[in-house]
Simulated assay, not measured.
Amino acid sequence: MTTLTKNEKLSQLFPEDLFLQAVTLTDGEIDVLMELEEAMEKHLRPVLAAHSEKGEFPFEAFSKVVADVKMLSDERLFADKTAENYVHSQYYNTYLYYVMARFDVSMATFMAVHAGLGYYTFLFGGSDEQKAKWLPKFQSFELQTCFALTEPEHGSD
């Protein structure tokens, strides 16, 4: 089996990256993103159209992606860093959402809300007890965070 270099992986994963912004990603981040793309193709592609037509989120298939790829908790994301002083690099988050949006924009939206509005709020604002209780459940997607918007005298329809 041939091992690809970092540049070969990036060229394969992001051929449209003409300004080479992805070079800021760590080797671990690149590997996680490549695994994510493969897992989405394997588990989500076969069921996505049917779920979309029904207006349903494919939670069962997405849970298989999460079983294959620990996109919030893989130790490779924390190389030389700790969860306490490190938000996945802004580039990692950007490319994580990009990989998902390229596949299906609803996946990226789900992830942006779950991670950006929920998970990181607990990571940075939670007490030690809250982090111990909730972060593993958010990382594994056992629980999903959400966002609600209300509009005075109208509702969100």
Rank of each mutant, 00 (worst) to 15 (best):
M107A: 03
H114A: 04
S156I: 09
S11P: 03
D80L: 06
L25Q: 06
L20V: 10
S156W: 12
F124V: 09
P58K: 01
Y86Q: 10
F19E: 15
E142L: 10
V23G: 00
Y92M: 11
D157K: 13
S52I: 10
L36D: 01
P15E: 11
F110S: 06
L20H: 14
Q139D: 15
L44G: 04
Q21I: 06
V105E: 12
K131M: 07
D68L: 00
L13A: 07
L143A: 06
F141Y: 15
A49D: 13
N7P: 01
T3P: 02
T145Y: 06
K81F: 06
E16F: 15
T109A: 14
M100D: 05
M34Y: 00
P152A: 15
Q144C: 11
G116H: 04
H154M: 14
L149D: 07
Q12K: 09
K131Q: 11
I30H: 03
S11W: 04
E53S: 13
Q139G: 10
F147P: 00
D104F: 08
E129A: 15
K6V: 09
N85R: 08
G28L: 00
N7Q: 15
S140Y: 03
Q130N: 10
L72Q: 07
A132K: 15
L72V: 05
E60T: 09
Y120S: 02
D31A: 12
L117S: 08
Q130P: 02
V113Q: 04
E16W: 15
Q130I: 13
Q12T: 08
Q21F: 11
Q130S: 12
R76L: 03
R102S: 08
A79M: 05
F62A: 00
V113C: 06
E60W: 02
H154T: 15
L48K: 09
Y97M: 12
D128P: 13
T145E: 06
M71K: 04
E60L: 04
V65T: 00
Q21H: 11
F19N: 14
Q21N: 11
P15G: 09
K9E: 10
A101T: 04
Y86F: 15
A112C: 11
V47H: 01
F122N: 04
